[in-house]
Design a protein around this nucleic acid. Structure first.
Lengths: 224, 224
DNA sequence: GTCTGTTTGAAACATACGTTTGAGACACTA
DNA sequence: TAGTGTCTCAAACGTATGTTTCAAACAGAC
């Protein structure tokens, strides 16, 4: 075979192990033994562990960002000049994520968990890589959010976007563990789709909350 | 000196480094050199790196959980039988966090970031430790949330609590960086208290969102 | 069949880690 | 002053990591 499947086997194994255990906690030896390839193959094909991490992200982020672009295109076309609503924008994003062609049944869950890790684990090289590779769909999403919430001040919008990112990244990055807890406590099975279906209304409601009306001053009798 | 300050120097350094870089990415050698103590002092005073992690959490979580208990006591007393509202409950928590006596100016931010890490990084030993040491204030908070949102199903409430935790932990953990960005972009100064004042309404609105009404079915025409 | 560039294999490399050791310094009691 | 328990220090231990090496195996072209 001209291009062996070693590369894909490594990517598959790395993707799953990274999602399970994080980056630093996953060694190349774990990856290569799970992938049943030689240890040296990683450095031969990718150059370094960091480059492997980049490759894992690129493999699903590149098609995702393409899907997202067309979803936004369709949305804006359908809205015909009018700015899309907040719900529409959030759903366009969610749909694009959920609909991505998955390699395995765990696909979407791994995808989300990796995105969460990317935000959470402070791997400088990863953040730099993602920023310079995928800045365009990101800033387009930001622009849509801005147009969908004209009532918000720039400062309010800024913070609420952070809150949304936080809720999403955090939940997704630990979604497996959370699902397990729910399974044990309440005996409920949950899919990533259902989590997303619960998350979006939460985010939309938070985003559109009436402004800070009943905020007690700090350092006085507070919760009156 | 009978009880040296080595222990505190180690705790201070570890706390800050953990918050900056995570647990696995922070070596004992980094900690001891930042604390200007000998490498062996960690294992002498704490026994192991994991035990040091526990100690770091215990140092701020124990007083915090005490503060929180009294805040909840006061709240329930003031409500006189009636269950406190969601806003009151969230504010009681926020107040307790903000009012905690801080060792440094970074105090509250480190506090939050560590909590986020505890949830995010899949350190099994940490989760076990926190669960068995601080389960009581946690489940009390959960009970208050439950009584304040009787309209939610258990599953809905579970996930929305996760969303709240995520938005909070994520925002607070990077609040320094976010504040700086805001300062540069919009020329706005922001305090942690103000962030909290924006966060709580966001969370309350998300928590009380109308249930997933306009959720399009996946794998059909989505964003109509 | 022979050659050439690509890919694999087992082993080693250098480095960093958490932990342990044992000798020394120090403060305190008797 | 002698003795005791507490703490610090430099050094080492064993292990695991990412990376490199170099010979062997393999593919396809001539």
């Amino acid at each position: 075979m001209a291009q062996s499947d070693t590369v894909d086997r490594i990517l598959d194994a790395a993707e799953e192990l990274f999602a399970d255990r994080g980056f630093s906690e996953t060694s190349l030896r774990m990856i290569t033994s799970k992938a049943k390839v030689n240890l040296a193959a990683v450095n031969y094909h990718f150059g370094s562990k960091n480059a492997l991490i980049h490759a894992v992200f690129a493999r699903f982020l590149t098609p995702f960002s393409a899907t997202l672009e067309t979803a936004f295109d369709e949305l804006e076309e359908r809205c015909d000049g009018e700015p899309p609503t907040l719900n529409q924008t959030l759903w366009a994003l969610t749909e694009s994520a959920v609909r991505m062609p998955q390699r395995t049944d765990k696909g979407i869950s791994i995808f989300m968990r990796l995105l969460g890790l990317a935000y959470t684990q402070s791997q400088g090289h990863l953040r730099k890589f993602l920023e310079q590779e995928y800045s365009e769909p990101f800033s387009r999403f930001m622009r849509l959010l801005k147009e969908a919430t004209p009532q918000l001040s720039a400062v309010d919008r800024y913070w609420r976007i952070q809150f949304m990112l936080g809720a999403t990244a955090f939940t997704m990055s630990s979604s497996d563990a959370l699902r397990d807890i729910l399974q044990n406590k309440l005996g409920v099975e949950t899919t990533v789709q259902e989590i997303a279906a619960r998350l979006v209304p939460f985010l939309a409601a938070g985003m559109q909350a009436e402004d800070t009306m009943l905020v007690p001053a700090f350092s006085q009798a507070p919760v009156a």
